[in-house]
C-alpha cells in the first residue's frame, strides 16, 4: 500500500497563506512533538545504519561490499529489478490507458483489483507462488519432469518481485492521466494521427513524469523486497540471495558490521529514491505554478 495519496496529482496545491495564527504555545508544542517523533522513528534509525556500517572502518566496509557473495546478491537484485520494472511499465501504461481514457462497466472493480497486491502480506505473496510452482504445487510435477525450476530459483524471485510491485506504476499513472482528460488525444485524432502516434507523441510525453515517478518507486520496492522473495528464494548463497536476503544472513551470523555495510547500499538507494521523488514533485509543482501564473496573466490582459 505504499505511496498512498502521494501521487503527482495530489501534490498540486501550492501552499496558501493563512491569516489565522495558532497561539505560540500550541505551535511550539506541536513542532516539538512532530519533529521529535520524526527524529526518533526516522532520523536516528537512518543514522544508525551508517554508523554501524562504518564501525570497523572504511576498509572492512569496502571488503563487505566486494565479497563474492555480496556481488552475486547485487547482480541478482539488479536482474530481478531489470525484469520486474519493464513488466510493470507495460502493465501500468495499459491499465492507465484503459481506465483513464475509457468508460466501461466494472471499471471501479478493476481499479480495486489492481491495488490488491498492496493488501496482501509479502509472505503470502511468496507462498502463493510456492503453491503454484513448488515441488508439491499445481505445476510442480510438470516442471520437475522438464527439469525447470521456478521456486528456489531466479524466476520465482522475479515473479514475487513483480507481484509486490504490481500496482506501483499503474497507480501513479491512472490519476495523472485521468486529470489530463481525453481532449488532447481527441485533438490528435482529428488532426489525423493514428492510435500509436497519438500515444507516443501526445499521451506518453504528457505522462512522462508520472511514469518516471512510478518507475522510481517500483525500482526501489523491487530491489528492497524481503518477505516475498525470502519465501521463494531458498537462501542459496551466491545463487538465490538478493541484497536484502544477504543482509539477513549476515546479520543472523552475527556479522553485524558487514550486514550494515550491505544494508547501507539499500539505504543509499532509498535516499536516492526520496531525492528523485522530491525533485519530480518540485518540478511538477513549478510547472503548475507557471500555468497558474499564465492563467492570471490571461485574466489581467
Amino acid at each position: 500500500m505504499s505511496g498512498t495519496a502521494s501521487t503527482l496529482v495530489h501534490v498540486a496545491q501550492p501552499h496558501r497563506r493563512r491569516t489565522l495564527a495558532d497561539p505560540p504555545w500550541l505551535k511550539r508544542t506541536l513542532l516539538v512533538v512532530a519533529i521529535g517523533f520524526v527524529a526518533l522513528f526516522l532520523v536516528i534509525p537512518l543514522g544508525a545504519v551508517f554508523v554501524e556500517a562504518l564501525r570497523g572502518g572504511f576498509r572492512l566496509y569496502w571488503a563487505a561490499l566486494t565479497e563474492p557473495d555480496a556481488l552475486a546478491a547485487v547482480r541478482l537484485t539488479l536482474l530481478a529489478a531489470a525484469i520486474a520494472v519493464p513488466c510493470n511499465v507495460v502493465f501500468g501504461l495499459a491499465a492507465a490507458w484503459t481506465i483513464a481514457k475509457f468508460d466501461f462497466r466494472g471499471k471501479s472493480v478493476l481499479t480495486t483489483l489492481i491495488d490488491l497486491p498492496f493488501a496482501v502480506s509479502p509472505v503470502i505473496a511468496g507462498l502463493v507462488y510456492v503453491l503454484m510452482f513448488g515441488a508439491q504445487g499445481w505445476m510442480g510435477e510438470w516442471l520437475a519432469d522438464r527439469d525447470l525450476r521456478i521456486i528456489f530459483a531466479t524466476p520465482g524471485i522475479v515473479l514475487a518481485t513483480v507481484f509486490v510491485t504490481f500496482p506501483l506504476v499503474a497507480r501513479e499513472l491512472i490519476p495523472l492521466m485521468q486529470a489530463q482528460g481525453r481532449d488532447e488525444e481527441l485533438a490528435a485524432l482529428t488532426l489525423g494521427a493514428g492510435g500509436w502516434k497519438t500515444f507516443w507523441r501526445v499521451t506518453l510525453p504528457n505522462a512522462k513524469w508520472g511514469l518516471f515517478y512510478g518507475v522510481v518507486l517500483c525500482n526501489a520496492r523491487a530491489m528492497g523486497e524481503f518477505g516475498a522473495v525470502s519465501v521463494v528464494s531458498g537462501h542459496i548463497r551466491g545463487e538465490t540471495n538478493t541484497i536484502p536476503l544477504h543482509v539477513e544472513i549476515l546479520y543472523n551470523e552475527y556479522q553485524t558490521q558487514a550486514a550494515f555495510a550491505v544494508a547501507s547500499l539499500l539505504t543509499l538507494l532509498a535516499l536516492l529514491t526520496m531525492l528523485l521523488k522530491s525533485l519530480i514533485e518540485w518540478r511538477h509543482r513549478r510547472a503548475l505554478l507557471a500555468a497558474a501564473h499564465a492563467e492570471t496573466r490571461t485574466f489581467a490582459s
Partner: peptide, 18 residues
C-alpha cells in the same frame, strides 16, 4: 475522426502542453 477532414477547436483548446 482523423479522416473526415474536420478541423476541431476544443472548448479548452486541448493544446499539446509538451
Amino acid at each position: 475522426a482523423g479522416r473526415r477532414g474536420v478541423g476541431f477547436v476544443f472548448q479548452h483548446y486541448a493544446l499539446f502542453r509538451h
